Computed example of a mutant assay.
Amino acid sequence: MTVGTAFKSWFRRTGSEILGWILTVAGVILIPAPGPGTLVLVAGISLLSRNYVWAQKLLGPLERRAIEAAKFGVATWPRIFLSFLGGVWLVGLGVVWWISPEIPEFSILSVGFGPELPAHGWGTAIGLWTSAIAAWGLLAYSVVRWHEPRGPRTKAHSNA
């Protein structure tokens, strides 16, 4: 048995399970944070679905809901345009978090903020930019896969 074959065999069971659990936990943590938390969570659950029935049962409804949401999101050109603008917004926020301008000091529920942005710096900026790229990629895929163009518009001709 070669090293490559042994590694593939190990990854099919153990490695994919370890990676699945890491992605699932990271996805749960990332859902409220800026970044592609939901995508990471679904990726982890899909890896775990190879070995666990509960993950298979969870993945089916997630997949159906994701397809329904994608079809709804690309049903009209204004929705597609607004989704694209959402990615532009994420890029802009990434630039702001990268630059990290000073903000006024304030507190919410006795938690102080300022003069720096919370979680400022390159890490958050890269997370936001990664989210924008993922969103645009999924938007492009959804448009190609599920956008139903309207039929050709015919003009009424008058013979008068």
Rank of each mutant, 00 (worst) to 15 (best):
H120N: 12
G86M: 12
F72S: 15
A70L: 02
R65F: 15
L59E: 03
S142V: 00
N51Q: 13
I108Q: 12
W146A: 01
A125E: 04
E116K: 04
T130S: 15
V143R: 08
V96W: 08
R64D: 12
I80H: 06
G123R: 13
A70V: 02
S83T: 15
G137C: 11
L90R: 03
E102R: 11
S49H: 09
R145V: 04
G127K: 09
S142M: 01
A132D: 09
W89K: 12
F113N: 03
A66P: 00
P101W: 00
T130I: 15
L139S: 08
L93F: 08
E63P: 00
V40K: 09
L117N: 03
S46I: 05
W136G: 05
E105R: 12
F84H: 04
V96I: 14
S110I: 02
G94A: 03
I108A: 11
L85Q: 09
W122C: 04
W122F: 13
G112R: 14
A43Y: 05
E68Y: 10
T76F: 07
T130H: 02
I126W: 10
V88W: 03
W122Y: 10
S100P: 02
S110N: 15
I99A: 07
A134S: 12
T76V: 08
E105C: 02
A125L: 03
I80S: 08
P104M: 05
F81D: 10
G44W: 06
F106Q: 01
G137S: 13
V74M: 02
L128W: 02
S110K: 13
A140V: 10
S110E: 15
G94T: 07
R65A: 15
H147K: 00
E63C: 13
S107D: 13
S107A: 12
V95W: 08
R64H: 08
F113C: 04
A70Q: 13
E116I: 00
G86A: 14
K71N: 09
V40G: 07
V53Y: 05
L62Y: 02
G112M: 11
W136N: 04
L62G: 08
L85N: 11
I126T: 13
V74T: 05
W54K: 04
P115T: 04
W146Y: 14
K57H: 10
